[in-house]
Amino acid sequence: MSEKRQHPPTVRLRRLAAELRRLRASAGLTREDVTEKKGINTATLYRIEKARTRPQKRTLMALLDLYEATEEQRADLLAIQSGSTDQGWLRPYHSELPEEYTAYIGFEAEARAVRNYESLFIPGLAQTESYAHAVIKGVWAAATQKEVEQRVQARMERQALLTKERPIQLWAIIDEAAIRRTVGGRAVMKEQARHLLQLMEEPHVTFQVIPFDKGAHAGMPGCFVHMDFPDPADPELVYVDTPAGDLFLETEAEIRRYKSMFEHLQAVALGPNDSADLLAKVAESRD
């Protein structure tokens, strides 16, 4: 019998985990100290602090007592604990998508800003349906038609983040290869280039292209996404999609490294106006 699929972590669960790690560190305690004083299994505490499980209320209360949390901290963390598994963004068919991808969709849905670098693809939030269909079918060669359609539908639903009342802030940087490679045919790429030009007119969207003549640059090892969230207390997150599996990075050192990398890419890329000119030329070349 297959195991019941677990929900991916939410932003709130990650925040709870981060706050508990911080409180323990402030109290000068190791996980082993907590086990000795409160009888909480070390492995369980590790899972709580890594946002892999939600602590039961009595466990959370015991930790807050041990860490001598203030009344304000208690109220805040208990409120987070009570809603830490909410997954309002899930659709019925999402249960058939890979768990890492549904986790990414959830984090993206709650993000304030997304900074996305892509070397070979148009960013998912900026893809047309035709381009998304062609690229998913091409990359995921073993997928059934149903699986392809589910991925395309999920990608199109994600783009509502750009048109909601308080839209997500998107800053996307791509290598010129992403707009030069013919995915789905010339007509599909012309439509995609024009769609990007329309998106660039929105105040919450910034788009830059790194031209071929810039040579080697910091983004060549691979793509990544950096997210931050409306509440500054929610930890920032970096997502990296690799052939070996998806990675969610959140340590301060990792966040700093990818922030620095994105800043280098901003500096080497064409400015938004010159990027728009290049996109317009690419669209014309598809006639």
Rank of each mutant, 00 (worst) to 15 (best):
L90I: 08
A172K: 02
N116G: 00
R91P: 04
A17H: 02
K281Y: 05
L20F: 02
Y67W: 13
R74K: 03
R21D: 05
T242W: 00
A187S: 14
E99L: 15
S285Y: 07
E110V: 13
L237Q: 13
A69I: 04
E19W: 00
G83N: 11
R21I: 03
R257L: 13
A283Q: 06
K164N: 08
L20W: 02
D86A: 13
R256Y: 08
R15H: 13
H204E: 12
L247W: 03
Q159W: 03
T251H: 04
G222C: 00
I40P: 08
W89K: 08
T42P: 11
R91W: 09
T144M: 10
G124M: 06
K146S: 15
T102P: 08
R54D: 01
E263R: 14
G245S: 00
E68A: 15
H226P: 03
F248R: 05
S84D: 11
R256Q: 15
R112S: 15
G28S: 02
T44Q: 12
E149R: 07
Q73V: 08
P211S: 10
P221F: 03
A134P: 01
Y117L: 02
L63C: 04
A142Y: 13
E129C: 02
V205F: 11
V114D: 03
K214S: 11
D65K: 06
S82W: 05
E149F: 07
L249M: 08
A134C: 03
T59S: 05
G222A: 02
G106I: 04
R194G: 08
G271L: 05
A51D: 06
S84M: 11
V282K: 08
L197P: 07
R180I: 03
D241P: 00
A233T: 08
A51C: 07
D246F: 02
W140H: 09
L278F: 06
W140D: 03
K259W: 07
A27E: 10
L90H: 10
A25V: 12
E72L: 10
R286L: 06
G219Y: 00
L23T: 13
V209Q: 06
Q153M: 15
M1Y: 08
V139T: 08
R54A: 07
Q169V: 14
G88F: 10
L97N: 09
Q169F: 13
A218V: 06
I40A: 04
R21C: 09
Y117F: 10
A142M: 13
A177Y: 00
R257H: 13
E191Y: 03
K57N: 00
A143F: 14
L170V: 03
A154V: 06
P221S: 09
K50L: 05
L279Q: 03
Q266C: 14
R166F: 09
T206P: 02
R58V: 09
I255F: 07
A103R: 13
Y117D: 01
